[in-house]
Design a protein around this nucleic acid. Sequence first.
DNA 1: CCTTTATGGAACAGCGATGTTCCAAGACAG
DNA 2: CTGTCTTGGAACATCGCTGTTCCATAAAGG
Lengths: 182, 182
Amino acid sequence: MTGSRARTRQAIVDAAIEVLGRNPAASLGDIAAAADVGRTTLHRYFAERADLLAAVGTEAGARLDRATAQARMAEGTGASAVHRLCQEYFDLGSLLSLIFTEPGIGTGSTGGGCDPEFTAMVERGHRDGTIDPELPVDWVQSLIWSQLYAGWAYLAETAASRHEVLRLILRTVDGAIAVKPG
Amino acid sequence: MTGSRARTRQAIVDAAIEVLGRNPAASLGDIAAAADVGRTTLHRYFAERADLLAAVGTEAGARLDRATAQARMAEGTGASAVHRLCQEYFDLGSLLSLIFTEPGIGTGSTGGGCDPEFTAMVERGHRDGTIDPELPVDWVQSLIWSQLYAGWAYLAETAASRHEVLRLILRTVDGAIAVKPG
DNA sequence: CCTTTATGGAACAGCGATGTTCCAAGACAG
DNA sequence: CTGTCTTGGAACATCGCTGTTCCATAAAGG
């Protein structure tokens, strides 16, 4: 019956991502309820709150890595790679809120500098004339995350479709990083 | 000694904005400590947490209104007005985090649609060719707030100067709302 | 000098979240 | 059917935050 345990555990982690994304201060009872699981069962899988948060961090890192890989940051112009990255990250859904509000959730204690692949992508864009050279690499990173988060929030508050919101995000991000005519 | 009361009260509200901006779940003890005031004194001025939050909301609304007025949204092209609005709002400092994380903090229970003045400004920009007509008014609003918040966070995490961060914000916001060449 | 005013500390009860233990019930495999 | 696995509910102690009361102290003002 080990398949059941894995399924329950995953349901709890998924629910935690969903609920904590909406409210980072949510109680374990809220998370258990969202997972359709008793609070006792949640504690059976994660003795302490910190254990659950660690599992959420691991899951977040895994999903993030998967999305990053699919974006193929090393291909095409810098701007086109940023464009693809936004598309893939947008699919992270409720995880976006969590990553944005809880910086360093899926990062292995790095905290500081950007991912080397990301840096390479933006600097390539600086050289190939598709990303404004005045914008530092980490500012481009802030830009992308804040736009993705804004889009996710916008999706939750308005009647706009997922597709329409993605279009808006891509349009504004592309414009923001574009080399300025003046 | 009524001057002292006003000063203490203001110090508490200011500290609350500062602390709650960094951590919306901060305890009253944290806020009192940040205001260099005993927790007892804080309770003397604000019997319940809700009372303090109401005062913070009022203060936030006042500062927001002041900044809005100074931006003169009705003057110049739509894009230039957005530009000025970003400059003024950036000066709100730590209040930015609070407004961003606690939507509707200083708004008089509106919640829904944008400010009419703001709407007029963006629609003017749509007509005068300085703001991309594909971008809905409330998306422009999301864009501005998310960029201001990102800038404020960037300022706290990096060694960049306030002036430099403002430059980055204005550059990316201007690019994001600009009419696209394609 | 003496009163009023403002403050901070200590102590206390209440509350919600947390973490633990124990037990009963249902599901599944042999 | 029987034993194991998984679960959920109830009860409990604990902890931190909240809100209140009481008292001591220090400063400002008459």
